[in-house]
Simulated scan of single mutants.
Amino acid sequence: MGADLPDYYFRVRENGAAVFRIGTENRQRRIEMVEIAAVNVKNGNIKPHGDVELTKADRTAIEDWLAARQAQMAAREVDDILRTVDHLNLTTQWAQSRATDAQLEAVTDTLLLAMHDLRTMLVKRKADRLGKAEA
């Protein structure tokens, strides 16, 4: 079983992960998980746990995981936005075909403000990008 296990385990937390070194080299062949570091995905900080000194292999494994996790989170973010576009389309269909006057009254102002805010920001950012392209 020990050969099938990875050398490291990353327990995902809200802003990163706790990193554990996996070991089975003991008399009972039990799986040992020793916490060696904490990683912050947002700023890339790697902080050794307690008195642990990270080896080059530890740092390489953590940095590889960090890069993969950041790419995964970026892809998820774009996917979430595309799902929002789908949800907006479903909301439009609902408002057109099934919503009652009372339901529309309950959501219209909030939706209009949120859409206005989004539109304003998108137009501003697009103008910024076009300005940079011309420069």
Rank of each mutant, 00 (worst) to 15 (best):
A106R: 13
W65P: 01
D58A: 09
G50S: 07
D101W: 08
V52M: 08
T100R: 06
Q93M: 08
V85T: 05
R59T: 13
L66F: 01
V52R: 04
Q93F: 05
E105G: 12
L54V: 04
E63T: 15
Q70A: 06
L88K: 04
D80L: 07
A74F: 11
Q96P: 00
A74S: 13
T100C: 09
L66D: 00
T100V: 09
L104V: 11
L112R: 15
W94Y: 13
D109W: 12
R76P: 00
A95V: 08
L82N: 12
T100N: 08
A106Q: 12
N45Y: 05
G44S: 03
S97I: 05
E63I: 08
R59K: 15
A102K: 13
L90S: 06
N89G: 14
A114K: 12
E63F: 02
H49V: 01
G44K: 02
A95D: 01
I81A: 11
V78Q: 05
A71L: 08
T91G: 02
A61I: 00
H87P: 00
R83G: 04
N89D: 14
L66S: 00
Q70H: 04
Q103P: 01
A102F: 12
A106S: 15
H116I: 12
L88R: 04
L90T: 02
D58Y: 03
A68S: 05
L112M: 15
L111K: 11
A99Y: 00
L66P: 00
T92E: 13
D117Q: 14
R83V: 09
L90D: 06
I46N: 00
L113R: 15
R69H: 06
I81S: 07
T84C: 10
L104C: 11
L54F: 06
L113N: 15
R69L: 02
I81D: 08
S97V: 09
Q70C: 04
H87K: 07
E53N: 11
L112I: 14
S97F: 09
T91D: 05
P48N: 02
R59I: 15
E63G: 03
V107R: 04
D86Y: 03
A71R: 10
R59C: 10
A61R: 00
D86L: 09
N89K: 11
E63S: 12
L104S: 10
T91P: 00
T92F: 03
T108D: 13
T110L: 12
D51C: 03
W94C: 03
D80P: 00
A71W: 02
H87D: 13
V107W: 04
A57E: 15
I62M: 02
I46H: 02
E63L: 08
T91V: 09
T100L: 06
L54K: 02
A75C: 02
M115Q: 14
I62D: 00
V78F: 03
D80V: 06
A106G: 09
K47M: 12
R59M: 11
A99R: 01
G50T: 06
L88V: 10
K47L: 11
D51L: 10
D109K: 14
E53K: 13
Q70P: 00
